[in-house]
Design a protein around this nucleic acid. Sequence first.
DNA 1: TGCTGTACTTACCGATCGGTAAGTTAAACT
DNA 2: AGTTTAACTTACCGATCGGTAAGTACAGCA
Lengths: 211, 211
Amino acid sequence: MANNTRERFLAVALDQFAERGFDGVSIAGIADVLGLSKQALLHHFESKEKLYGEVLDGISRAFQERIEATDATPKNDRDAIAALLAALVQDHRQHPQQTRLLMRELLDNSRRAERASHWYLRGFLDALVDRVHALPQWGSAGRHHAAAAVYQFLGAINYFAVSSPTLKAMFSDEFYADMDDCFDAQLEQLIRAGLAAGPASVRLEARQRNA
Amino acid sequence: MANNTRERFLAVALDQFAERGFDGVSIAGIADVLGLSKQALLHHFESKEKLYGEVLDGISRAFQERIEATDATPKNDRDAIAALLAALVQDHRQHPQQTRLLMRELLDNSRRAERASHWYLRGFLDALVDRVHALPQWGSAGRHHAAAAVYQFLGAINYFAVSSPTLKAMFSDEFYADMDDCFDAQLEQLIRAGLAAGPASVRLEARQRNA
DNA sequence: TGCTGTACTTACCGATCGGTAAGTTAAACT
DNA sequence: AGTTTAACTTACCGATCGGTAAGTACAGCA
């Protein structure tokens, strides 16, 4: 089991970074979980930053593979959009730690702006926006309308995914389970309704804000 | 200016905690911003945790006041729901640091579960869910349907609010400005479409997951 | 048998952390 | 004038941080 240790380090690091954030985690703490010394970790990853980078890269890669798998779905079709977003929901459900860590990155990356993997969402986002923009009603309005709508969908998904532990604690376990059970169907309905409603007409006031 | 210093500490602390998180901030760093020593801070707030608690309480209080101000809107009405959520969008726009810090709390509070102010959203959430549940189509389905829908709305708002710096960096400033300009109208349209669509019928498969 | 590289270990380092102790300064009150 | 109190300061503490240095144990290979 040569690089098995390496992968176990990455798994533990993902867990801890997701739960406590970069600054809340010590490399000694990560090593302790595996019963190894801090220097064992530094032997495989030359610094805490490098370790963190590899964790993010791993998420990014897994994410890319998953969206490429669903990228073959038909374009110019509401079903396809709903299917892509449904896949994203399942993704978040199956990898909650990845979702949590990426939400932390979203909060931190104004400082860590140099890191490229932050735009992990960019490809997925563009693909979705293109698909929405290609829909009959949406083409007439600017692309930013489609982008706003797509980002609202993503927000609905991501926020719920990240909130799961809080909602469990806030409500009863049973009520949360009920919410979770109907979430997907409710979301799909919302997406379809939103897409059918088409782009909103922007009132003039908003434009004048930049005066 | 007796307790002026105190308030300035709180303001700087909010900024730093929102930007770097609890563990990423040092009390000496906060004090430095005001040109004071670390012990000046500890004179006003007996510990870092207490300072953090007061910052959160301040947000919670401000948030409560703002939602109480809009709580007088009519019930059993789609316009009222849209108005409450529109107010929330404005709220986030005007206090981005508060929004960011609360998102961090959402990520951290599985560890800090003892803190009560985490449920700052609870009142607002319940009020919204009640209003949705009172709508003609929604009453027939369980309350959790309304809760899921409301949480999707909140997610769309919150996620966008928190993503602002990232979106600015990811797209051109102009494209982001366009998105931002049409966001409110797009969101209102989504909310109205979602409410009009009513609760989704849950397929049996989801229920069987608990087997 | 001797050499080399991998996978670790213990020992240690300077920096920084939150927090304590003990002043200092000046305004406010009696 | 004397005392108290609020608002700070400098000096210091032990703990923990990320990271370096130097060694050990062992497997594979010539």
